[in-house]
């Protein structure tokens, strides 16, 4: 496990650095090093590009990938469902709806309003999920999952409605945001996302033991002393912190949370203490690479979120065929 983590960390370092090289103007490796070493206050044009444009953007992308993948791994264990991911439960789509409403009603709002609204939307969706399922009873995990799916389609309908009601110009903006991407993201977005993501990740990691026990079923988890009801709330809260932060700065980027844990399980096993950190690193690598590809090699219209979906679906189908036995 330590070796896998080291390899992933090294990969992430390389991916982050390479992502600094290309863009509207290409930098050589040496130039990129020089620009980096000059620090954020560097006077050269290269240093400005690296420190003010490319580095924050690629960091945002890495953080989003890591947060989504870790949350995906945690949700898959919590719901004992290989298809569970941050968008399945309506958490991400709650964020989308909130963001769309802001774009729709407050087009002139300051730059930080949109991420804040998306974050609140994600949290509102998670809260609604808990309130609906836990009010007056003890829901089974299946009920929580199904309620999440229903909420998700409700929010998606809300988004569609907003799209239908918007004019040409708004429509373009809404669609752009909904495609998910890191266009023009800066340090402010890093600052918005990082604390919440770290908190969410720490929460998920701290209940790793509970997640492992829950993956074997609720009665088994209870038999080894896991307070199942509280564990579910804690995991939902940790997941909402991570996913909310991710959606708030990048919009809905699909499939990272679904695929990365599946990719890594054969290597690191299913134990949360190994799976969550390696998923975080792996998700960061995957998304930085995808963003690089979308930014540098693909036509301008193909946003990060579109690319992950385009690549994610066939890849996931391939995984399904290869591992028909057990997916989790």
């Amino acid at each position: 496990m330590k070796r896998t983590l080291a390899i992933l960390a090294a990969l992430l370092g390389v991916a982050l650095f390479v992502s600094l090289l290309a863009g509207s103007s290409d930098l050589s490796i040496g130039a990129a090093f020089r620009a980096l070493s000059q620090g954020p206050a560097g006077a050269s044009l290269d240093s400005g590009i690296v420190w003010n444009v490319r580095l924050p953007r690629t960091l945002v992308v890495a953080l989003v990938g890591g947060a989504l993948a870790a949350a995906g791994g945690a949700f898959q264990a919590l719901f004992r469902n290989p298809m569970a991911d941050p968008s399945l439960l309506g958490i991400a789509s709650g964020g989308s709806l909130a963001a769309v409403l802001v774009l729709f009603h407050l087009p002139q709002a300051p730059i930080w309003i949109l991420p804040l609204a998306a974050f609140c939307g994600c949290f509102g969706a998670a809260f609604l999920l808990v309130a609906l399922t836990h009010f007056g009873g003890r829901p089974t995990m299946t009920i929580t999952l199904l309620t999440g799916v229903v909420l998700s389609s409700l929010f998606t309908s809300g988004v569609s409605l907003a799209l239908l009601l918007s004019d040409e110009y708004q429509l373009r903006q809404l669609v752009f945001w909904l495609a998910g991407g890191a266009e023009a993201r800066g340090w402010i977005h890093v600052a918005i996302a990082l604390p919440s993501m770290l908190a969410g990740f720490a929460i998920l990691l701290s209940v790793g033991r509970w997640l492992d026990a829950l993956a074997l079923g609720e009665d088994h988890a209870e038999a080894v002393g896991v307070p199942v009801y509280r564990a579910r709330l804690v995991v939902l809260a940790g997941g909402a912190l991570s996913v909310g932060a991710a959606v708030s700065v990048c919009g809905p980027v699909g499939f990272v949370g679904l695929i990365v844990p599946h990719l890594l399980r054969p290597w690191v096993g299913a134990s949360a203490k190994a799976l969550l950190p390696s998923s975080a690193l792996g998700g960061a690598v995957l998304l930085v690479v995808a963003d690089f590809v979308a930014r540098v090699w693909l036509p301008a219209g193909i946003q990060l979120g579109v690319l992950t979906s385009l690549l994610g679906v066939p890849f996931f189908l391939w995984l399904l065929v290869r591992e028909r036995r057990t997916m989790l």
């Binding site: 492992d212 074997l216 038999a223 096993g269 989790l328």
Partner: peptide, 20 residues
């Protein structure tokens, strides 16, 4: 308590499982 149905859907190691 040993439940009657003991599904293992995740690739946990035997030792991890016993450690629970």
């Amino acid at each position: 308590y040993l439940p009657q149905f003991r599904p293992v859907a995740v690739p946990l190691s035997v030792e991890d499982l016993v450690a629970m």
